[in-house]
Design a protein around this nucleic acid. Structure first.
Lengths: 168, 168
DNA sequence: GATTTTATGTCAGTCTTGTTGACTTTCCAA
DNA sequence: TTGGAAAGTCAACAAGACTGACATAAAATC
């Protein structure tokens, strides 16, 4: 494949429609792989991807509010509420009224919720780890760079804020 | 960031859970961006992602059968059928009874179908092109390598068969 | 103190897209 | 030639998204 370098060393991209289409299809098929393992686990327990997403981001930012979660997930509150309600009823998520602002609900995973989060994320991380290992370290950096450049600016800011919240 | 090379030059991957989680979130947010532009166009015309996927792969392999499409898309035939029916009714897809095997239906885009396909894929390719340009040529190779490694083996074979079908 | 805004939750109804089950037509092989 | 398998269609249902209207409580503002 063309590596995009001219003889003079200048970096150019010769991107044919064909190459771009391959990238698009790669995203499509890879995303299927990406969700396959968690989907299997969720299905056994009667949950769906919506539950996984909620669990993931609550685990990521314990104590986050409903509104916060809404802006991350990009769904309506009615849609999120349905998911949260079942998770609270099933004892996977705890919803605590805010201390400063009593209108807010702060969301936490219970021990049971943590356990499911770990099961889901173990599976997904393992898939990621294997893919990274096969592709190699430089590939991983490229992967991350392209994905970040593909995000909508607003989501990209959100993503990087999450990134800083962790301690990379 | 750690580039995974030891002083001796040996390639190792130091993948913390944190780094893997970032990759997972990057996939999540990037996929939203990836589908955002086509989703907008589809919404205007009263179609959804399922229609886009069908249109994409029919355009990619004109004359493909329903069964072929099923194995690519990974849904039930009943689900695909509903989508195909509306596309045929709306005059975007033509379904021709097979000549050798009359049980088969061979699928083709009409001119109208081609036009929508172009509109959708122009938008999606543009997003891809911008992301590739921002990330740089090496990143593009890494991106593709990781995505491919993330696919289920069966889908990966399918993906590479599509790849050969085109003339890269 | 009264009013408005914000955060959350809920009910009802719709849409897309997935599912399973039952059915027809066609092909092929015993 | 008949019986099973394969390709496709129709019907009914479920998950999970959506909109819109409304309720409640708390905070913020006038």
């Amino acid at each position: 494949m063309n590596d995009g370098r001219t003889p003079g060393g200048q970096t150019l991209l010769f991107l044919t429609d064909e190459q771009l289409r391959k990238g698009i299809e790669a995203m499509f098929f890879a995303y299927r792989g990406f969700t396959a393992d968690p989907d299997r686990i969720l299905d056994e327990k009667g949950y769906g991807r919506a539950h996984h997403r909620a669990i993931h981001f609550i685990s990521r930012s314990p104590g986050t509010t409903v509104n916060n979660l809404l802006s991350i997930l990009g769904v309506t509150k009615q849609s999120l509420n349905r998911v949260l309600r079942t998770l609270v009823e099933d004892g996977l998520v705890e919803s605590r009224v805010g201390t400063r602002d009593k209108r807010e609900r702060h969301l936490f995973l219970t021990d049971v919720g943590e356990a499911l989060e770990r099961e889901l994320s173990d599976a997904q991380r393992e898939r990621m780890r294997v893919a990274y290992r096969e592709a190699g370290p430089e590939a991983v950096q490229g992967f991350r760079a392209v994905l970040e450049a593909m995000m909508d600016p607003e989501l990209r800011r959100l993503f990087n804020r999450l990134k800083d919240a962790g301690h990379e």
